[in-house]
Computed example of a mutant assay.
Amino acid sequence: MDNKYKIKLGISIGDTNGIGPEVIVKTLSDNRILNYCTPVIYGSAGILNKVRKALHAEHFNYQQADSAQALAPRKVNLVSCWEQDPEYQPGIPTPESGKASLDSLLAASRDLKAGFLDGLVTAPINKDNIQGEEFKFPGHTEFLTSYFDAPESLMLLVSGDLRVATVTGHLPLKDVPGKLTEQLLIRKLTILQQSLRNDFGILKPRIAVLGLNPHAGEQGLLGTEEAEIIRPTIMQMKERGHLVFGPYPADGFFGMQQYRHVDAVLAMYHDQGLIPFKTLAFESGVNYTAGLSIVRTSPDHGTAYDIAAQHVANETSFREALFLACDIVRKRQLETKHAV
């Protein structure tokens, strides 16, 4: 592949005291990744060198770049985000590690918005210690939705042919029923359909919609949201010619492996979708933010402070996040080329 057309992927380092730096170093120690993209880490040499030394990762090498406008092709690039490294205290969330994760995310996001990068892979942050004047969001998804001026986005978990999206994201469970409306469901289903077509190449996607209540409401005995909101929305989508089915009781749907017969599943809230997804695909799962003008992926795990610096963190999810970002960027590039 011509380096001129090599995909440039920004990588935000995440909370420096979590496992983000470790899974980044482990993933990029395999130089074959450079056949697919030019990785650009936003962090510091000090942190990376400490992790590389601890892991004995002699195959991990990088080139320091002054900016994303001056990258070395066929190399891992490092753009420094701060003059003085935060104190490296693996396993301990600190204000310094939170600020470092924000500085990295902001720098990568700025370069992505400016067009110097083709996509972004985000290592895990701590949603508490990253908070500040420039970050007042429940997580990456909400921040990036705002930063890239999208009216709405969708959290979509991906592992091979298993795709699970959520109508509501980082929201207290008690607030979920009050947020559900036909309009919201239609918007989320529309984003999901468009992403399945445009980002995953599924021309006529089949989508299963889960109910909110146990047994999908049991004909109103256990809740009315299915009859009043979810089922009418599904009927509207069917009348428009879309392959949307449900509502299904969540436990039976996953227990009977019905997800194997559709292209994606739409859950009503975070844990309803993420618990079965992570049970089925924890080490290989990827969090993709659908509905944005840019491509952003992340591993489906958190900072994992309890195993930081123990050298046991599994990098599979981060590697899959990087490859999925490459695939979607390449598909979008080809679609743009064919449209011209």
Rank of each mutant, 00 (worst) to 15 (best):
M1R: 13
L9K: 03
G10C: 00
D15H: 03
I19V: 15
I19C: 05
V25S: 01
K26D: 11
S29H: 07
S29A: 13
D30Q: 14
N31H: 10
I33M: 15
L34I: 13
V40F: 11
V40P: 09
Y42R: 00
G43E: 00
N49K: 00
K50C: 08
K53Q: 13
A54S: 14
L55W: 11
H56S: 13
Y62N: 01
Q64T: 15
A65F: 11
L71G: 11
A72L: 10
P73D: 08
L78Q: 10
S80A: 13
W82N: 02
E83V: 09
Y88F: 14
Y88W: 12
T94S: 08
T94R: 01
K99W: 11
S101G: 06
S109K: 03
S109G: 05
A114Q: 13
F116V: 05
L120T: 01
A123N: 02
A123S: 12
E134F: 12
F135N: 01
P138D: 10
H140L: 02
H140I: 07
F143V: 12
Y147L: 06
F148L: 05
P151C: 07
E152K: 11
E152L: 11
S153K: 06
M155N: 09
L157Q: 10
L157E: 07
V158L: 00
G160K: 02
V167D: 03
G169P: 00
H170I: 13
V176P: 10
E182G: 15
L184S: 03
L184V: 05
L184H: 04
L189K: 06
Q193F: 07
S195D: 04
S195Q: 01
F200V: 06
G201A: 14
I202Q: 00
V209C: 00
V209A: 04
A216V: 00
G217D: 07
E218Q: 13
L221V: 10
L222E: 02
T224A: 11
E225D: 12
E225I: 06
A227P: 01
E228C: 08
I229Q: 10
I229A: 12
I230D: 07
T233L: 00
R240L: 14
F245I: 07
P247E: 06
P249A: 04
P249F: 00
F254N: 04
Q257G: 09
Y259G: 05
V265W: 08
L266Q: 05
A267H: 01
M268F: 09
Y269A: 02
H270C: 05
L274V: 12
I275T: 15
K278F: 08
E283F: 13
G285A: 01
N287P: 09
Y288T: 04
I294V: 15
R296G: 01
T297G: 03
S298P: 12
H301F: 04
Y305G: 09
Y305S: 11
D306P: 08
D306E: 14
D306L: 08
A308D: 04
A309Y: 04
Q310K: 15
Q310I: 04
H311A: 14
V312F: 04
S317N: 12
E320W: 04
F323G: 09
L324E: 15
D327V: 02
I328L: 07
V329R: 05
L334P: 01
K337A: 08
H338I: 08
H338S: 10
